[in-house]
Design a protein around this nucleic acid. Structure first.
Lengths: 341, 341
DNA sequence: CTGAAAGCGCTAACAT
DNA sequence: ATGTTAGCGCTTTCAG
């Protein structure tokens, strides 16, 4: 029914050249000194018939698609879901659409996805990069595509990124455990060479060293299948009854840890004190509430989108890449307090 | 550097017409009886130089964008995030990209979003529709767009939808509470006329009636700002100390309910038994674990995507719209068992 | 101030 | 079996 009408249709209907229509529609009437009455007439007619420019044709012509590609690790992870939500809002508000995908931290998959995005002519990229993707990102940048990394960065790639102070975050959390008097503190995390993960381990180790304690780091290989995370984790916890505190490196592994503790009938903080990276409802509502390193998701999203929009607008001005490091907040709750039950 | 090369570039390089290239690339070589050696030569060259068709141009020409528009209520809600994740996977596997957005159940926003999607020439729509969007959806369908609704449907719009058996789910959950011996059972939900919500209330009421008890339904106006959900909820719970059980209508409100119980120092099931719609980690890990009505997210996603792909493929065959109703699973945990502490 | 015309990269009738 | 050519709907230079 709503027969798609094109710019020529409306040009014909009004007996004007389509060029003129195009100028008017793009707000260049002033500049082109087009009669105010004509402008009004056109605008009125356009509104009346509900004409909408075909964005595909426009994109083909202009090379801009008004689309941003967003690549997160896993959209169903609450941390990434919240960020995606916030970015989505800001992007739509600025006339951009988001095409998203989950990388699963899989290099091959991410490469395919980047190609897909290129294909689609997305105008900009927001990426939480997996390992081994350096070259692809670099080639993107070399081709002049605006790229903003977040949550982590690639040490050898010079581009803008937004992340939190991971090193201090785990240092601080570990110090908190030490100050509470815990002696056998483990750090349990996913095996990864990503910057944020490396920093988190280092922060833990620095604190352990500063306290003259012994470090215990358990790295678990990430897997989509939760059982394959639970099993090694369970084995580890059973094999290390001497531990009196655990710091978990991500919300996902922290949640798995809590499930195991529930299974084994271990209570925090009496049996084992617990802290996890990334705060969310599960930790807040747990009994006892779980101390967590809370990332400023809003701030992250805001920074990501504003840096990207900046690059999108002054494509010419190639300023120094910005590295924005945000502070986290250690939400101290009962799970890490000695002498609380 | 990677100078975008077009189909003509490769046609020239090989001294062949671009039509031939186009046919070969689209797998119509057989059909067009193009020489096998030529085909191979072209394929080889294409792979070598890494030629990628410009999907924008292709879309403009063919009218297909290989994009699906996905509209959920809120991508940061774990239920929708999981579904989105699953749909994303299936869609990519079938060569479709997903453009998504959160409607916030806001009719106006959803209308804008639908227009945006139309603009973008998405090939199909997956929508968890807010109230008042009937006309827009109908116009979409009238224009021949494949539309699949999920999580709820629009009673007066005849199209495919996938949802769960909401009525039986809350009926069953309420019966469970009654069987456990609870007498003052409230249903707390978001104020909404959406089908799934109406059914959930009705299921509760049917069960209450069947048990000869008195119904207490509390509807809370949805708001982005969590405090505006917590406040009326807190007031309600304080004002109704006689309640010995509450059934929450969604995971979000269930989570808020748990937070309030924590604030007020109320324990389930001794002070108040609790069941919530939508299972997730929070409920599983809570102390005590919370009984929840678990929706089959994988099945929902699978059905949604296969129905949509079906419509995308036989656009001609306009079979009867399918209504797929899936079963939920009442995961009984300690929060709803009498005589457990 | 307004219009004609040349493409953006691709597909598909319609030749040949 | 392969090439010619006309658009898809839009923007933008260049002429009036």
């Amino acid at each position: 029914m709503k027969k798609k009408l094109s710019i020529v249709d409306i040009a014909n209907a009004l007996n004007v050249s389509k060029t003129t229509i195009s100028f008017i529609l793009n707000g260049r009437a002033q500049e082109k000194r087009i009669g105010a009455e004509l402008v009004e007439k056109v605008m009125k007619y356009v509104a009346e018939v509900g004409y909408k420019a075909n964005s595909l044709a426009k994109s083909l012509r202009t090379g801009k698609s008004n689309t941003i590609g967003l690549m997160v690790e896993d959209i169903s992870n609450p941390f990434f879901a919240s960020i995606a939500r916030l970015i989505e809002d800001r992007a739509y508000k600025n006339g951009y659409k988001i095409i998203y995908c989950s990388t699963d931290n899989d290099t091959q998959k991410t490469q395919d996805l980047i190609n897909m995005f290129r294909d689609r002519h997305v105008d900009g990229y927001i990426i939480a990069p997996p390992e081994g993707i350096e070259e692809d990102i670099e080639s993107l940048i070399k081709d002049g595509m605006p790229v903003v990394l977040f949550d982590r960065h690639l040490p050898n790639v010079s581009t803008d990124f937004i992340e939190v102070d991971n090193l201090f975050s785990t240092y601080n959390a570990t110090r908190h455990l030490i100050d509470q008097g815990f002696k056998n503190i483990a750090f349990v995390t996913f095996a990864s060479h990503q910057t944020q993960m490396v920093d988190r381990v280092k922060g833990y180790q620095d604190a352990i060293n500063s306290g003259g304690l012994e470090a215990t780091v358990k790295e678990i290989v990430f897997n989509q299948d939760e059982a394959l995370i639970m099993n090694p984790l369970r084995d580890f916890m059973k094999a290390n009854p001497q531990l009196d505190a655990i710091l978990f490196g991500t919300n996902h592994i922290g949640t798995c840890g809590l499930k195991i503790m529930q299974e084994l009938g271990k209570k925090a903080p009496t049996d084992i004190a617990v802290i996890s990276f990334d705060d969310y409802d599960v930790f807040e509502l747990h009994s006892p509430p779980v101390t967590a390193i809370s990332q400023p998701v809003e701030e992250i999203a805001d920074n990501v989108i504003s840096v990207l929009l900046e690059k999108l607008n002054d494509s010419s001005v190639s300023t120094k890449p910005q590295s924005i490091i945000l502070k986290t907040d250690l939400k101290i709750r009962n799970s890490s307090l000695k002498g609380v039950s």
